[in-house]
Every structure is written in C-alpha cells, then in structure tokens.
C-alpha cells in the first residue's frame, strides 16, 4: 500500500530576468512517497495548467543525477536534505504529510534568475572556457596505455571529474563562491600528465575568470562540500590554492600567461 501525503509548497515565481519575483503558496494533495521531487513538481505544474495558470519552470534533463541541470534550494539546502544526491534523485519519502516545503532558485549575483527556478549558470561555462582544456594531438586516438598513469592519480582525477557543474556549491556558500567548482576542474586537469603543459596558465586563467564573474571568495567553512551531490571534497580547494600560489610564483619569475 503506497503512502501519499498532502503538502504545502512555497515556490519562487518570477516571470523573467527583469521582473520582481515572489513566493506563491500551493496546496498539493495525494503525492506518492515514491515519486521523485521533480515528479512532484510535474504534478504541481499539471495542476496549475489545469487551473489555467503558468506551470513552474525548473531546469532538468537526465533525472538520474548525472547531467547537473536540476538546481533548486529545497528548505534551505541546495538539492534538498539528502546527502550526495541531486534534486532529481530526491524522493518524497524524505518528506512527511502536512509539511511545508520552500523551493527557491540558486541565489548568486553571477546566476541571475531567468524564470521561476531557472537560473543562468553560464558563468561556470566561462570558467571552463578559460582553461578547461588540454593540448591534444589531433587525428587518430592515442593508445589507451601510451601514457601510464598511477592508479592513485587516476582515481584522484576521477574524483575531481565527478563534478557535474550544477552550481550547488555556489548556492550553498554564504559568499556565493565558485571555488569548489573551479577547484574540481583545475584539480582534475592539473593532476594528470595530459594537463601539464597548460597547468600554470590554466590555474591563473580560471581563477581570474572566476573572480571576474563576480563569485565571492572562500572562507573554508565547508558548506559546498556538504551540499555537493557528487561529494567533491574540500581537498580540491586546497589543491587549487596550492596550484594558484605556485602559478603566481612561476609567473612572477617567468611569465606564463
């Protein structure tokens, strides 16, 4: 026998970038505890459309926690109360009957709200464009084992590469800092031999772009790590700080950029 629940939803509604948004309160009944959080929002949207209202706009794509599209702050926590999951992987069984759920978009100056819960996360793309690439030989693919990489290094780079770029770190940070995102990208590429030629240039360019986009600085408190659906650790930020200091030192004596 599946359990259902009645919910009160406080959802941020905003027509477009320029308009002033506000919270709207909706009642939603008979929500299955087996439905995902996004399915619950789909049900809400159907109800709104049936009543002749605009459905709630929110980002989503794969709905299995790998694309990094879904982005909403649920009861004050990016991606909701579960550890290491995206909003789409969150299920309604983690809520209870009669609960009020507040749903807000990511809040950061570099992430302007486009509509309702959808924000513009292109500043993260700009950080990637600044240095998230390697020099690769064009043409046929290189033999997979042409360049041996220690297991430990490969695992570490893989842990960093788990970042799906959802922006929850920015949303969770009291300073709206993108350090966890940037550091994951830098640590991923700087730790592998393929990433060495641009190492210092990449570090400097990505940090400069990150600061230039208007993200705040890191205060080492760890809210990003706790909100990250991929559990990217603060180690990556330490790695970025280290690489940044080295890159600045190198650049001082022998300009790299």
């Amino acid at each position: 026998m599946e359990k259902t629940m009645n919910l009160t939803l406080r959802v941020w509604r905003q027509k477009n970038r320029l308009s002033v948004g506000q919270f709207e309160t909706y009642q939603l009944s008979d929500v299955s505890e087996d439905s995902s959080f996004l399915e619950m929002l789909d049900i809400l949207s159907e109800q709104l459309v049936a009543d002749g209202h605009e459905p709630v706009a929110f980002d989503h794509d794969c709905r299995e926690g790998i694309c990094g599209m879904c982005s909403m702050t649920i009861n004050g926590q990016p991606h909701g109360p579960e550890n290491g999951t995206t909003a789409c992987q969150l299920h309604m069984r983690h809520f209870h009957d009669g609960q009020t759920i507040t749903i807000e978009p990511w809040r950061a100056k570099p992430f302007p709200v486009i509509k309702d819960l959808v924000v513009d996360r292109s500043p993260l793309d700009k950080i990637i464009q600044a240095g998230g690439f390697i020099t690769a030989r064009a043409g046929s693919a290189v033999d997979a084992n042409a360049m041996p990489i220690a297991k430990q290094t490969a695992d570490y780079a893989m842990d960093a590469a788990a970042c799906i770029g959802c922006g929850a770190c920015v949303a969770a940070c009291p300073n709206a800092s993108a350090m966890l995102f940037t550091s994951a990208k830098v640590a991923h590429m700087n730790s592998l031999p393929q990433g060495q030629p641009e190492k210092h240039r990449r570090t400097l360019a990505m940090v400069t772009t990150m600061d230039g986009e208007g993200f705040g600085g890191c205060t080492n408190i760890g809210e990003c790590e706790a909100s990250c659906p991929k559990n990217i650790p603060l180690d990556m930020i330490a790695h970025l700080n280290r690489d940044y200091a080295l890159a600045q030192l190198k650049n001082f004596f022998e300009p790299v950029a």
């Binding site: 004050g76 926590q77 809040r107 800092s177 408190i221």
Partner: peptide, 23 residues
Amino acid sequence: DNRKARPQGYQEKKTIQASYSSR
C-alpha cells in the same frame, strides 16, 4: 566582495556542517 556576490539572499537557509566559530 562576498556580500556583493549574493545581493538577494535566501528566504530559508540551513547550515549543514559549518562550525559556529567558522561562521
């Protein structure tokens, strides 16, 4: 700089693991 990075705050915000002294 950090204040400027979030002009509009959250209506509801939970602290997950940050210590009191760090905040």
